[in-house]
Design a protein around this nucleic acid. Structure first.
Length: 243
DNA sequence: TAAATTTGACCTAC
DNA sequence: GTAGGTCAAATTTA
């Protein structure tokens, strides 16, 4: 089952989900008041930051002091999530485009490919192209998880410290991640980019039994084809910006 | 010809 | 012993 940290990350996400629901209710009722809305938005953003921090960082930042009290009880601490050589898994994205998207804002170099026992598809391994020059430890794994339509899972690991220039507008920061709507209580919330293009986040284990068992509540999938045709909402992770 | 990719071998954790 | 991850030589591509 989930670790204590996973529970806290989930709790943070659910907290943000609840606030997103409240925000939606306000908007539905045309109660467009900054006094009401801003605290909710701040709390939602903090929920994301905190949830990510449980996964990624021993010292998670809180972007909005104004709402940090709302997250009382969700004390950040070092994630107990699976580590490989001290590197934390960061994100999984599901790419429903015919080919895995290479232009995620960083330059990658393929260094390996393996047939995975639990999947008929091979898994490709990439590391940052500047791994040696800048001692950047960022890596990613790309694996097809479905033939029709082609679906790829990309798992990002480590942090980019190479300061490579993201393809997408850097004006998006972590604070630009926002909830647009919440589909249901049983579905993870939806990210949107700044043009409000919906990005579905699915909990992985419940739906993908063909993959190997690397995913937990912290790993989620994003429909790339919803994501990439528009400006990718880069989000900060420590000193890195993930796109 | 340099850079990128492929692929079999090797290493390590379980 | 097995499986996943990485290395590095060989091969391909621009």
């Amino acid at each position: 089952m989930f670790s204590n940290i996973d529970h806290k990350a989930l709790a943070a996400l659910l907290h943000g989900q609840g606030c997103a629901n409240s925000l939606k209710t306000l908007l539905d009722n045309r109660e467009i008041s900054s006094v009401l809305i801003e605290p909710l938005i701040n709390t939602i953003l903090d929920s994301f930051s905190l949830a990510l921090s449980f996964v990624d960082s021993p010292n998670p930042p809180l972007h909005h002091e104004s709402s940090s009290q709302n997250m009382a009880g969700l004390v950040p601490q070092r994630s107990s999530k699976k580590e490989i050589c001290g590197i934390h898994v960061i994100k999984n994205y599901r790419d429903e485009s015919p080919t895995p998207r290479p232009d995620d804002g960083f330059t990658w170099r393929k260094y390996g490919q393996k047939t995975i026992k639990t999947s008929v598809h091979q898994r490709s391994y990439y590391r940052c192209a500047y791994a040696k020059e800048h001692n950047c430890n960022a890596t990613k794994r790309v694996q097809m998880i479905q033939d029709c339509p082609p679906v790829y899972r990309t798992t990002y690991m480590g942090q980019h410290i190479c300061k490579s220039i993201p393809v997408y507008d850097d004006t998006y920061g972590s604070e630009m991640i926002q909830f647009d709507q919440v589909v249901s209580e049983s579905v993870m919330p939806i990210f949107t980019s700044t043009d409000h293009e919906a990005i579905t986040i699915e909990e992985d284990k419940a739906t993908d039994h063909t993959m190997n068992q690397e995913c937990d509540i912290n790993d989620f999938l994003v429909a790339y084809d919803h994501f990439w045709p528009n400006e990718f909402p880069s989000f900060s992770y420590g000193d890195s910006v993930f796109s």
